[in-house]
Design a protein around this nucleic acid. Sequence first.
RNA 1: GGAAGUGUGGCCGAGUGGUUGAAGGCGCACGCUUGGAAAGCGUGUAUGGGGUAACUCAUCGCAGGUUCGAAUCCUGUCACUUCCGCCA
Length: 420
Amino acid sequence: MLDRKFILENMALMKANIANRGMAVDVERFAALEQQRRDMQKQLETMRAEANALAKNNALSVDERRTRGGELKKMEAELSARIAPLEADIESIYVAIPNLIYAGSPLGGEDASKDIARGKQPLPKFDFKPADHITLMENLQMLDLVAGAKVAGSGFYYFTNMGALLELALTRFALDHVMKSGFKPVIPPDLARDSLMQGAGFVPRGNESNTYHLEDSDLNLTATSEITLVGRYADEVVDLTKGPLKVAGISHCFRSERAHGSATRGIYRVHQFTKTEMVVVCLPEQAEALHLEMRRLEQEIFDALEIPYRVLEIATGDLGAAAFRKFDLEAWMPMRGGKGDWGEITSTSNCTDFQARRLNIKYRDNSGKLQFAYTLNGTALSVCRAMIALVENHQQADGSVRIPLVLQPYLSGMTHIRKE
RNA sequence: GGAAGUGUGGCCGAGUGGUUGAAGGCGCACGCUUGGAAAGCGUGUAUGGGGUAACUCAUCGCAGGUUCGAAUCCUGUCACUUCCGCCA
């Protein structure tokens, strides 16, 4: 979230910002209610000041204090009762107010996102009729969608044999790669409390929720380890004097939403997947360079996997509420939509201090003052999407799949996945 | 799962319902001392909101309650510790 005072002092900016994101948040109402609340709060504090002074005043008898104190107490209670619902209204608008936007982000909706770079690998040319990932993987006994549906429902799957090993190989390869740039490995919980989900900025647009909630508890299956990796530092003063905190987490991600249709066949959109995620907590002046570093690492990973991709500078209307600036990598998936299409494989966001303010993550600056830290996140590798791109791009005429060189050490030196 | 105990400023730790936002120590900052350092001595050192300021309000895990007055009493909740049970 943004600073309340900042919002009140920059109303024009707030309105433009919300419009650019294509959102509807009534900041006017926020300002009006907030002003009302402040006036009432001042009254309340005046009463409290008198009550405090009274309680400390030994010159008065206990009876005298009791009489006036009782009156004040009643008045305070009445006023508080009027402030509470007001505060609730204010809060509901406040949490919906999105982060500011990077000046260079293209204006507009999803279609306005700008194609700013390409990976090293050219688009594949097949001299045979290529198959989609479902056919390929089922033939190679790597994937069992039917069993997934039977056991857990549509949107779940089994990775079997080389499928299982490939998940581990991809995950470990991505982790190793980002570790070379100083990211420390972490395996976080796959569940998180309600408070943390909200804190991390997962304010579902409208009332749609993308997460599984555990009945009779305040726990949720996490949709991304960003929640647990950043949430780990909630309510803490982090030490940034030895450089930014850089962590890479491996976790399962659970998402309850699922659109249907040919674009989502197979394992493109599933309820559970494994992801290696990067998270950074840093000083404001370090954030941009680290954001670009994460993007570079993502590109290096997919260049190494010999998967063609493009890099998008995400448009204002497609940024998450917490994101100030965001890049996506979209891999070429030769059979997506029947004739090939780009599909999102990674995403990296600079959340500035928006997320840290909500989670109360601070650092001490040079003058010793507490300041909100900046947080960033980026996908190193999300297994299902990477797997689709890998098998579809590296498929051979005989139905086997070529294993890119960098992955071979993680698969006992195998060069191809073949039918047994 | 059962029982008992504990949660206090960056850290450790005291705290009788009534100037306690909180003793003391560590750490940190500044100063004195020194040829320089260490030691020693002195001073300062929680966070957030409102106000030009004086000042004021809130905060002792969290949420409620009792009271003129709560860190202190009560209820709930979360976390940690110890013991028992169970378990990979």
